[in-house]
Design a protein around this nucleic acid. Structure first.
Lengths: 181, 181
DNA sequence: CATTATATCAACACCGTGTCGATATTACAA
DNA sequence: TTGTAATATCGACACGGTGTTGATATAATG
């Protein structure tokens, strides 16, 4: 488990990552074996262990990469006061990478990814959720809004984007502000 | 896989179910093996296969039992117009069986249990969520409220019930009604 | 070119799985 | 109580995924 920054090592990791994302479209993460991944990536099984300890570690790598790219995308939009517009842009990004987010957000195999992803994304893109209530209730309201929003997006993916991104963005924005004005 | 209604068979299934719930307090469901369960239940591994096909089937059985008991509990409270009171009673029930719900609701292993459980419970106990908005948005609002409420409860369990059941019940009730008045 | 880093390969022991046949134990009803 | 059916046990088996090892091949770097 040394540094492994060579082109080759990076290429190998890329192969493993794409193999995993491919497989996750076909079956739930819980029943994807290391052998599966290596066969799909056309790599020797021993090679896997040179880079990751198990499937979870590989998945974590995929998730971090996705999150990083999403943040970068939002950063390029730049700071703006148009919160619904930012949400809309974010939704479009998700729809453009639908196959990816369908597995990462909807599959139960990587549940912690949801909270991390949405939280980091929304927080760092300055879409602040205003909370003003009794302090002991604050974390609960936050949790409510967070998870409610996430699952709206998940529902959107599951329904194959049956409403406009703009519509959903406004809905999320308005719903959150109706709860915490 | 015949009928198996004998006392013995029921006892065996009970042993298996309690063994699983015990194990789920110790480690995530995903890494609980059939061997684990049988050793804990002090049963031969072959016996397991006489009753269930795999761990998931056993878990489903546990979940159904829990759900049935919860519904029965709420039914005994009787129909009332006091919605927050009903939610509060439900929350107290969860707190009384904290060790059970901590695993079933919080553990990612049985994620679909969440939606089923809360949905069935809330629906059948007549705590109707009023939804009045554009019809294409309705399922999204419903999803938002459902998941938001569920995760407030999960947060409550995770925080070891740091606020009063009454407080949380009111919070859930009011939050839902602020979104969908 | 030489050195270092990666990847391959075959092989190994280990563990959980699902199934089988034979046997022991319990339940229920005649 | 006894006979029969249902249920539980036991040992054993083949199968497949796991994690590791040592030797070897290939590619990257300076």
């Amino acid at each position: 488990m040394a540094v492994k920054n060579n082109r080759r090592a990076q290429m190998t990791r890329l192969l493993l990552k794409t193999a995993l994302t491919e497989l996750m479209r076909e079956k739930p993460f819980s029943q994807i074996t290391i052998k599966d991944i290596c066969e799909r990536a056309d790599l020797n099984r021993t090679t896997f262990y040179l880079h990751y300890t198990d499937q979870q570690a590989l998945l974590a790598d995929v998730e971090n990469e996705v999150q990083q790219k999403a943040l970068e995308y939002l950063r390029n939009i730049g700071p703006t006061d148009d919160a619904p517009g930012l949400i809309e842009a974010f939704l479009r990004y998700i729809r453009e990478h639908a196959d990816l987010f369908r597995t990462l957000l909807c599959d139960a195999g990587s549940e912690d990814f949801r909270s991390r992803f949405i939280q980091h994304t929304l927080e760092k893109s300055r879409v602040n959720i205003p909370v003003s209530c009794a302090s002991e209730e604050e974390p609960y309201v936050l949790c409510f809004l967070m998870q409610g929003s996430v699952h709206m997006i998940i529902e959107w993916i599951r329904r194959d984007f049956d409403i406009e991104a703009r519509t959903l963005a406004l809905l999320i924005y308005q719903t959150c502000h109706r709860v915490a004005p």
